[in-house]
Every structure is written in C-alpha cells, then in structure tokens.
Amino acid sequence: MISAAVPRRLKLSRELVLLAILVALVIALSLMSPVFLTISNFLNTSRFFVEIGLVALGMTLIIITGGIDLSVGAGLGLVSVALGFTFKAGLPLPLALFLGVGVGLAGGYFNSLFITKLDLHPLVVTLGTLALYRGLALGLSRADAVSNFPGWFAYFGQFYLGAVPGQLIVFIVAVAIVWVLLARTRYGRYVYAIGNNEQAAHFSGVPVARVKTALYVGTGLLVALAAIIYTSRVSTARADSGTGLELDVISAVVLGGASIYGGSGTIAGTVLGVVIIATLRNGLTLAAVATTYQVLILGLLLIVAVFLNEFFRKTEE
C-alpha cells in the first residue's frame, strides 16, 4: 500500500477526524430533524451532491498542483446554456449533449492555455474566465431559459436504479477512476511533484505543462457531466445555473485536507468533504434554517477549514 508523497499515517488521522466530524454532524442533525437519519433521505441527498462531487474530483487534483479553478460554476452555466439553446434552435438533443461536453472541454482548455503558455496565475485567469463564461452564457441565452426537453433527457438527473439515484452511480465510478489515477499511476505522482516543487519537477523531466493542461481539460469534462446532470435534474437550462458552485467545491476539497498551497490532498478526503457539506446543507434545509444562513455558514466554513488545515500541517511538522 504505497501511494505517492504524503506519509500514510498523517492522511489517516486527518480522514479519521473528518469521519468523526461527519458522525457528529449526522447525530446533531438527526436530533434537529426526525426525517434526517433515513436511508431514503441519504439517497435523496446524494442527488444534490453529485454535481459538487464530480467537479470536486477535478478540483482536488488542480489544488494539489497548487492551482485553482474559480470558473467551474460559470462553466456549468455555459454548458447548460450551450446544450439547452442549441437544442431549442433545432439541434437533435444527443448532438446538443455532445456539444455541451465539447464546450466543457474547450472551457478547461482555454483556462489551461493562459496558465501554461503565458505562465499566469490560475487564480486571475479563472477569475477572468468566470466572468467570461458566465457572460457568454447570459449573452447567448439573453437571460432566458429552456425547459421543454424530451422525456428521456430526465434519465441523466432523475433516473433511479432501485432506490439508488443514477447520478450516484456515475459519481462512484468517477471517484474510482480519479482515485486510481491519483494514487496508483505516474500521473498522480506527477501531480504531487508539481504541487510540492514545480521547478524541481520541471527540471526532473516531469511534463508539467501537459499534466496541467490535462487537469484543467479533465475538470472541464467533469463540469460538463455535472452540467448535464444538473440540467436534467432541474429540467431547465439557464445561464445562472451553478452560481456559487466554486465555493461549495473549493470548500469541500479544502475541508477534505488538500492544502491550498498545493502538494497534498486525497480523493478520500475530498469525498468526505463533499458528503459533509452536502449533509450540512441538507440537514440545515430540513431543520428549516434559511438558505441565507447557509451562505454565511459555508463562507465561514471555508475560512475555518483552511485555517485548521494549515494549523494541523504546522503542528505535524
């Protein structure tokens, strides 16, 4: 059992802490709402966290390399609009879906161009593309919405296999793939190497630019998947879909133990982070806490998570 860089012991302890938090959260919330602790509620919750979770997988790898992608929420909106409005304009829906995936990939690639070719900080680049993608979505849709999709489109976001939502299966498959990629392949090793010391990685022959490009394009693909599932789930394509998604995603990844400075993080941690955030949101909703409080709590949670992370890291050293 040897993965990449981080000593095994530390990862385990951090993930155990997260599990403990999750258990405590579940107990607290089940006391606040009787429906909370039921299997049907859990499965139901999973329908809402898959979109966050899929994007968080890509974001984890990006954050481990020391980068960030703020444009994911806007990208989701743009993909949603792209597939919805080309469908409305007469494109067959399967083709529109492929177009949506293409837009997602292109969005990620566009980000990576600025980051690798011009050596610009991902933060500023994706802040720019956040505005650009959201703006394109708004402009192309003229702030309108499309919702008359054919019945089979609902499969992507509303399908159930028994009691299990279809998107949960998609998510589990995606988790498995990304986990193997990060922990078992040389690309995973490269990701950690870049995050710990990009210059040394470059000097050691690691194809830094190619790895980064692949990560942003891959995240674009996950954003497209999330967009299709989301659009299907709510049966509507709108430009403001996914607003604020980047906050949920980054919070989940950071809560999962990835260092915002790059170099460390795991898929297991991120999955736990996603589940905690989704549980919190769902629980707070069931406990009738206004969504307004949820934004406040989430913002504070992000800051506290990063703070604790770096605090833990310092005491470990």
């Binding site: 604020g244 913002g299 800051i303 770096e310």
Partner: peptide, 23 residues
C-alpha cells in the same frame, strides 16, 4: 496572522459578508 492565502480568505468573506447582509 492566520497565514491563509488572501484569495481564500476573501472568497470566504465574499460569501460570509453576503450571508451576514441577508441575516
């Protein structure tokens, strides 16, 4: 003092302050 990157702090504050307005 907290040594958290400013992008994360101010991203968190962007949401936290908006939440405070609503609250």
């Amino acid at each position: 003092l907290g040594r958290i990157p400013s992008i994360i702090v101010t991203l968190g504050m962007l949401y936290a302050l908006r939440g405070m307005i609503l609250v």
